[in-house]
Simulated scan of single mutants.
Amino acid sequence: MIKMVAVDMDGTFLNENKEYNRSRFKRIYREMKRKEIKFVVASGNQYYQLKSFFPEISDEISFVAENGALVISEKEELFCGKFEEPLVHEMLAFLSKSPQIQVLLCGRKSAYVDEKESEDFKQTSKKFYHRLKTVTDLTQLEEDVFFKFALSVPKEETEKLVMHLNKEFQGKFVAVSSGHGELDLIIPGFHKANGLEILQKKWGILDEELATFGDGGNDVEMLRKAAFSYAMANGSQAVKLAANYSAPSNEEEGVLKIVEELLELGDEKK
């Protein structure tokens, strides 16, 4: 029996317009609550952005945000990762040598972007980071807890850069691709699956009672973890290899369709 459902957002739960069928989900969520099944949003995006998608229920569901660096359940912060300051400066110095890489530094209070980055990058970042500050120097920031770098790189160089960063900074950072020329640098071991594990321990839920949905490289660990793991039809090859099952694409409301089946609700797009 499923006791917990965890969904990635972009390319998985959301369509290309960054939306989802709210009335259909409302019906599903009502049934999940009736059956005491937990709903978890597991994304590389910022917590403040993620909760905006669920204004009516954000205080009663759980979020594994920033690719696992921040876990908040029913308004309670359960976990917040942290890079030590020297490590942050080491990575900033490394990235400064590659002008084609645009950088966002993510913290508990806010995300930060250097004013020298392109306007297009800054405007795009605002869609995913509702708390975003433009600063003159990322090495001279106000006090915050920093737990992730979000990078925009030339799309054709994404996988090569992931491999290079993981080799260069082994044990210090883990580079994961979220697709489309975007990648994150996260704390080793603090990925989405780790965030789900924190919630599972809180509620006494086994991997055999967990369903996960994803489409990108940053979903692989949580897909491998769950007995009921679903790769979206639009997902990467790595995701399809990691998952036990497949789901229709995000444009076909694949997550909602599969969860309806798991709940034995039937397929009703209302």
Rank of each mutant, 00 (worst) to 15 (best):
E117F: 08
L223D: 02
V162F: 12
P188F: 11
L132C: 01
L50Y: 01
A226K: 07
I61Q: 09
Q49Y: 05
L95R: 13
G195N: 06
P99R: 01
D10C: 11
V5T: 14
K257S: 14
S177A: 03
L78V: 04
I187Y: 07
I37A: 04
A226M: 13
N21S: 02
E157Y: 08
E60L: 01
Y129F: 14
G44A: 13
S249Q: 06
K269F: 08
H180E: 13
L263C: 10
S110A: 03
A211S: 00
G181H: 09
K133G: 01
E264M: 00
A111V: 06
Q102M: 10
Y20L: 12
F25W: 12
E264Y: 08
S23A: 08
M1A: 10
N250R: 11
P99E: 07
Y20P: 03
A242S: 07
L92D: 09
N244R: 14
N17P: 00
V174Q: 08
N21W: 15
L92Y: 10
A69Q: 06
L185T: 01
G171Q: 04
S249W: 06
L161A: 08
F173M: 00
K155T: 15
L50E: 10
R22S: 08
E84R: 15
Y29T: 00
K51I: 05
K33M: 06
L265A: 03
G216V: 13
I186N: 09
F53V: 07
N15K: 02
M4E: 05
I198E: 12
F121N: 08
F146A: 02
S62H: 01
K122E: 06
V88M: 04
S177L: 02
D144E: 14
M222N: 03
M9S: 02
E208W: 04
L87F: 05
A175K: 11
L241R: 13
L151V: 00
E115P: 02
D59A: 08
C80Y: 00
D8K: 07
A175Q: 07
V239R: 07
Y129S: 05
L265F: 04
R22G: 11
S23D: 06
K35L: 13
R22A: 06
E60R: 13
H130N: 12
K33E: 15
V71D: 05
E251M: 08
V176Q: 03
E119S: 13
F63L: 11
V41Q: 04
F146K: 01
L138D: 12
K269T: 04
T158F: 13
I61N: 06
A243I: 12
I72M: 03
D207G: 05
K18D: 07
V5S: 15
P248T: 00
F13W: 14
G107A: 03
L196F: 01
S73A: 10
E142P: 00
A6D: 09
G44K: 07
N194I: 02
A6L: 10
